[in-house]
Design a protein around this nucleic acid. Structure first.
Lengths: 150, 150
DNA sequence: GTAATTGCAAATTCTTTGCACGGTC
DNA sequence: GACCGTGCAAAGAATTTGCAATTAC
């Protein structure tokens, strides 16, 4: 989906919940769209937004991210390093989106595979738990770091 | 595994890495053993330890948890609520240990099932990523909250 | 005795909040 | 002109660090 369409959709989602797509909020969404693979923290988003809209405040970024998270437009994820990262949700990516965190270099790779369909069914039937979303991160050694070691 | 055995094992692991099992560290491990299902935060652990050893400091708890995490004796996990929780690692629980987070009541249920064996193989072969560990949390509605709604 | 470990308080980091001001319908 | 949204600064929460005193081998 291109940026213009994505922005229109976000605008509608905000309006439906009584929020406006202000220039600041739009800037945040654009930065998220332009860095879809990067798992940015609030501060990283702040600095990127500042390049184009230097007057924005960090608190606004946090407030925007909170709204977007509440509306399920972004996922808030933590990789156990003590700060939140924000991930734009993709279309119908219910259980397709997972992470590979390299313990050597810290890089986070994103993978999209339908890996959990069966697993979710087991959880639903065996634990009577209705699955809405998930967080799956594998910790290990990425292929780059494996090659470096040889 | 009972508490005495678990403590002995932890003591050995610490010694092997040049650390001592001090009374404070022992108290922390005992609290973790006694609350294996609870996903305690550092502060919760601190208060539980304080009941038996009132002189302990919060910084010591944090330092102990850091060591235990580094030695893979505990897992540091975050459920995207902005604070870290600590989970004692069980024997050979490589891919058996997952979480069900209820979006209604906030409760975290722990499940042990070999759900990811196949998935890990896909990740290893398709992405050339050597899996060492994982974090898998399902977000949804627990059976209690489903019943309450009816 | 040497080196690791501790408790306390201060510092740091990440995030949230209070509030007066600005923009919009 | 009511209301939402903003920037700034201050407050808050979670965690880390500096350091002198204590403990263990």
């Amino acid at each position: 989906m291109n940026t213009v369409l994505a922005l229109q959709k976000t605008k509608k989602q905000l309006h439906d919940s009584g929020f406006k797509l202000t220039p600041q909020r739009e800037s945040v969404v654009i930065v998220l769209l332009e860095n879809e693979k990067d798992h940015l923290s609030a501060e990283e988003i702040y600095f990127l937004v500042k390049k184009k809209s230097p007057e924005i405040g960090l608190a606004t970024v946090y407030r925007t991210l909170e709204i977007l998270t509440d509306l399920h437009i972004v996922n808030k994820v933590s990789f156990d390093d003590g700060l939140a990262r924000y991930d734009l949700r993709k279309e119908g990516a219910a259980h397709f989106h997972h992470h590979l965190l390299c313990l050597e270099c810290g890089n986070i790779e994103e993978i999209e595979e339908d890996l959990l369909g069966e697993v979710e069914q087991v959880v639903e039937s065996r634990y009577h738990f209705i699955v809405k979303d998930h967080r799956l991160t594998f910790h290990g050694i990425c292929s780059d770091c494996q090659n470096k070691k040889q």
